[in-house]
Simulated scan of single mutants.
Amino acid sequence: MKKLRYVIALLVGLMPLLIACSNDDEPTPQMRMETFDYAFNEGQLVGESTAYMGEHPRDLMASLLVEELPAGNARISITLNNTLAGETYMVHAHDMADPDSTPNGTPYLEAPNANVFVGMPTATGTSVMYEQETSLSYDEVLNSYDGFLVVHDPTQELSTTDLTTYLVLGVFAR
């Protein structure tokens, strides 16, 4: 009986150490990420008639980063380089659509898809960054979502139908 008490006391004494031990040796799952670079809208996506027309410097470039998050969804970040300080850049995703089915013949739904990506970052210098979590998974963003990335010219009136006001127009996350 004395030995049993000794064993129980020893186990109770070791319990905090056993509980404190965790599976720290198990590797953390590697979250995936992929970057997509976009050139200035020279009409390369939809045709020359949709090339940007305006006064914004044509050296603006966009980089879109899609990151897998532990919760199963994704974070989407955009970095714009060669921006105009103090200007607010409307950036967003438009769902692709048949131009014959949209009111103005656009190849996308004219309302941005806020569930995927919509932001209005203001440039504090020659670059600006914006990020947003989406409920879509990393794989859905990269493989299933059919949309366009649009960056509007902050020096012109906002239009979702005049592609010549878009600084960047590209297939989203491709």
Results as ranks from 00 to 15, higher is better:
8 I>Y: 10
9 A>W: 05
9 A>P: 03
9 A>T: 08
14 L>D: 06
15 M>N: 12
15 M>C: 12
17 L>H: 10
18 L>Y: 12
19 I>M: 12
20 A>M: 07
20 A>V: 00
21 C>I: 08
23 N>D: 09
26 E>M: 06
28 T>I: 09
28 T>H: 14
30 Q>Y: 08
30 Q>F: 06
33 M>H: 15
39 A>M: 06
39 A>D: 14
40 F>C: 04
41 N>L: 04
41 N>K: 08
43 G>V: 00
45 L>S: 08
46 V>C: 14
48 E>I: 08
57 P>S: 15
57 P>G: 07
59 D>V: 03
60 L>E: 01
60 L>D: 06
62 A>L: 02
64 L>P: 04
64 L>A: 06
68 E>I: 00
69 L>P: 02
71 A>C: 07
71 A>K: 13
73 N>Y: 05
73 N>T: 12
74 A>Y: 03
74 A>E: 05
76 I>F: 05
77 S>I: 05
77 S>T: 12
77 S>N: 12
77 S>Q: 15
78 I>Y: 04
80 L>K: 09
83 T>N: 04
86 G>W: 05
89 Y>W: 06
91 V>F: 12
94 H>T: 09
95 D>C: 09
95 D>W: 08
98 D>Y: 03
100 D>F: 01
101 S>M: 09
104 N>A: 14
105 G>M: 07
105 G>E: 02
107 P>N: 00
108 Y>T: 04
110 E>L: 14
110 E>S: 14
111 A>L: 05
111 A>K: 11
112 P>K: 06
112 P>D: 10
114 A>P: 13
116 V>W: 11
118 V>P: 00
120 M>C: 10
121 P>Q: 08
123 A>R: 03
123 A>I: 01
125 G>P: 04
125 G>L: 02
126 T>D: 15
132 Q>I: 01
132 Q>F: 02
133 E>A: 06
134 T>Q: 07
135 S>L: 13
136 L>T: 01
137 S>I: 01
141 V>G: 02
142 L>Y: 02
143 N>M: 12
144 S>W: 07
146 D>E: 13
148 F>T: 01
149 L>G: 07
153 D>C: 01
154 P>G: 05
154 P>Y: 04
155 T>R: 13
158 L>G: 09
159 S>K: 06
161 T>Q: 13
165 T>G: 15
166 Y>P: 00
166 Y>G: 06
166 Y>W: 00
167 L>N: 07
169 L>N: 14
169 L>P: 04
173 A>L: 05
